[in-house]
């Protein structure tokens, strides 16, 4: 017992140094002003940024929903392919992720720009050009593109884990192909769906690069706001820390809520349908 405890010391030290200590620093900054005095001002002034929060959450929710709508069928189709083809599909999905995140996003800039690839293509077809760059739609597109694999993979994993004999049992009980899906396959993939939602929503709600590149100045998100407090013109580290803290709490509540759905689903999955 004692020996195994000693093994955990480096990890505890790591945790202390890089998680607990920084957390306390953030909390300290959030509750002080630039003179180092205790205050709630950072939180009471945050209502100024309500519109940014709203925009962030709205975009993150929309992108997550789109990722789910696109990702679930994709994951489902993948899980029904032959083993060999599954591997190929998996590589195709992972491939873009091996490219740098910034590079990928800048690539979208050159596509969506007013005289970018998309509009050139449209005018070549004699169709009206569209002004999509610097709109929330462009930011949403960037989010969906970047985070879609994080939706597909956990769903795919939970779908392939589903025992074939359960599907046969469902048919044996009289299920049509559709009922097999709604009564067995889908309920059993809910854990995958939930972790997909978390894995898309959390980075989407706190991203700052995508909105900067594809949204121009007009579509500032919470991530940009925080960045601005530390590195940008609005320099106010205390405010930055307070916003970060609020975001963290919201995300924690969100994860806790999805966890609860999962627990409820356990044993009563059919209720969800």
């Amino acid at each position: 017992m004692r020996g195994s405890k000693a093994f955990s010391y480096p990890y505890i030290l790591w945790l202390l140094l890089f998680t607990v200590v920084p957390l306390f620093i953030v909390i300290y900054f959030a509750f002080t002003n630039d003179a180092g005095e205790f205050t709630f001002d950072n939180f009471s002034y945050m209502s100024l940024y309500a519109v940014v929060f709203w925009r962030s959450f709205r975009l993150a929710i929309i992108s997550t929903v789109i990722c789910l709508i696109l990702g679930y069928p994709l994951a489902y189709i993948m899980s029904r392919l032959k083993k060999k083809h599954q591997t190929i599909a998996m590589i195709l999905i992972m491939l873009p992720m091996w490219m740098n995140f910034l590079l990928r996003t800048y690539a979208w800039l050159t596509i969506l720009e007013n005289n970018g690839l998309l509009n050139n293509f449209l005018s070549w077809l004699h169709l009206p050009e569209i002004a999509i760059i610097n709109t929330p739609a462009a930011v949403g597109l960037g989010m969906v593109y970047n985070y879609l694999p994080f939706m597909i993979l956990p769903i795919y994993t939970s779908l392939t884990k589903t025992d074939q004999s359960l599907i046969e049992a469902a048919k044996d009980m009289g299920c049509s192909e559709r009922q097999v899906f709604t009564k067995v396959i889908f309920p059993l993939s809910i854990p995958g769906v939930l972790s997909g939602i978390i894995m898309v929503f959390v980075p989407a709600v706190s991203t700052f690069v995508i909105s900067k590149i594809l949204g121009g100045g007009a579509n500032m998100l919470v991530g940009d706001l925080i960045e601005m407090q530390f590195l940008g013109g609005a320099y106010n580290a205390n405010m930055g820390a307070a916003i970060s803290l609020v975001m963290m709490v919201i995300i924690m509540i969100f994860i806790w809520l999805t966890g609860k759905i999962d627990k409820n689903g356990d044993g009563e999955g059919s209720v969800l349908l």
């Binding site: 044996d172 809910i190 999955g269």
Partner: peptide, 16 residues
């Protein structure tokens, strides 16, 4: 069929 490995639905309780 009563399957060789039962194949009960893990997301449902006994009654369901």
């Amino acid at each position: 069929t009563v399957f060789q490995k039962y194949a009960l639905f893990p997301h449902l309780n006994v009654e369901q």
